[in-house]
Design a protein around this nucleic acid. Sequence first.
DNA 1: CCTAAAACTGAGCGACCACTCAGTTTTTAT
DNA 2: ATAAAAACTGAGTGGTCGCTCAGTTTTAGG
Lengths: 194, 194
Amino acid sequence: MKKKEAILKVATVLFANKGFADTSVHELSELTGAAEGTIFYHYKSKEGLLLTILDKTRESIVGQFDEYLEKRSFDSGMEMVEEMISFYLYMAGLMEDQFLLLHRHFLYKYSETNPEFRANLEAIYNCITQFFEQAIAAGQKDGSITPDVEPRKSALVLFTMVDGLVRFKNYNLYDAGALLRELMQACRRMLQAH
Amino acid sequence: MKKKEAILKVATVLFANKGFADTSVHELSELTGAAEGTIFYHYKSKEGLLLTILDKTRESIVGQFDEYLEKRSFDSGMEMVEEMISFYLYMAGLMEDQFLLLHRHFLYKYSETNPEFRANLEAIYNCITQFFEQAIAAGQKDGSITPDVEPRKSALVLFTMVDGLVRFKNYNLYDAGALLRELMQACRRMLQAH
DNA sequence: CCTAAAACTGAGCGACCACTCAGTTTTTAT
DNA sequence: ATAAAAACTGAGTGGTCGCTCAGTTTTAGG
């Protein structure tokens, strides 16, 4: 069971950082110490390996979000929004390769033809956006968030911002850390009741 | 000169939609009617072809932004911000393939080792973010935008949002059109003076 | 019409690709 | 200890890749 895990781990890093087509099975074999045949023994194809990685990624992300929100409680909806943004960015740092992978276009190409890819991606995005939506709806109930915004759509706009920040970091475009404070302030201004 | 252009056009579409590694020179040859040798006659390598595409993309995007902002004038900084967001999204629709290409990771991989890639990407991002920054600074002067925000960082947050929306559209994640109104409202709330 | 430059061709090359399979080693259960 | 199952191996296969190059066709100027 050692090599099976090693293959998955190394493949996650390489697929995320080098790309799917640019990572050869030969390379995976060299870096894991497993023969090429072993890779195909555990995962029937290179695409199958990618799907397994995506599966584990979904499991991990959705699991950690569920766990976090079960344990935590919040004084207000607005606080929940802020804490969720922090937690998202914390997770993106913790699972850097997986979040980088989620920004890779080949996943979305496969999901056009393979429903298993599609289902995993949808599960991840739905989980996150739904929690944002719940937070906004809760905030509108307790008065911490303005009733002028539409919860679902605002949740997507929030996600756009947070996910964009992660993309900045992953693509080495701008210093994401320096923007965190400004992003938080922007979200607060965007949602706060008067 | 006919085939040289055709190669560039077809390659732009395929690199953006299928990816760089997943597009073969053979395929480009078939779709353009040019022999494989012709492609290497005009562009010394596949990577050279990609660089030429990026070069034209930068030229086009920066050129159109400059032209737009030279011709237009705005009543306030806030209006300029709003119009720039509209124009960005308008351009992203007009040059769909080029904007999709800019979200492709292979460009950022090449830019780590090839300064010509880096320079083109920086020119594009600097152009857009600087105009956003100018708009915010102008708004702070004319009183339409709150002095509480830092122009440069807020410009990057704005860009995060707009670029994220384009990504949603390109990746077929959510209906970007339905989010436009909410995004605009979010930007206004985020920046408006009291 | 002539000629030189520019545009174009496609067979061929070595390298690499994902994947297979017949056989070996290791693990597990009895 | 033994046998069955699971894990693992790596040489081999057919195919595709980016790219070259010797030669042909088209274009442009005098």
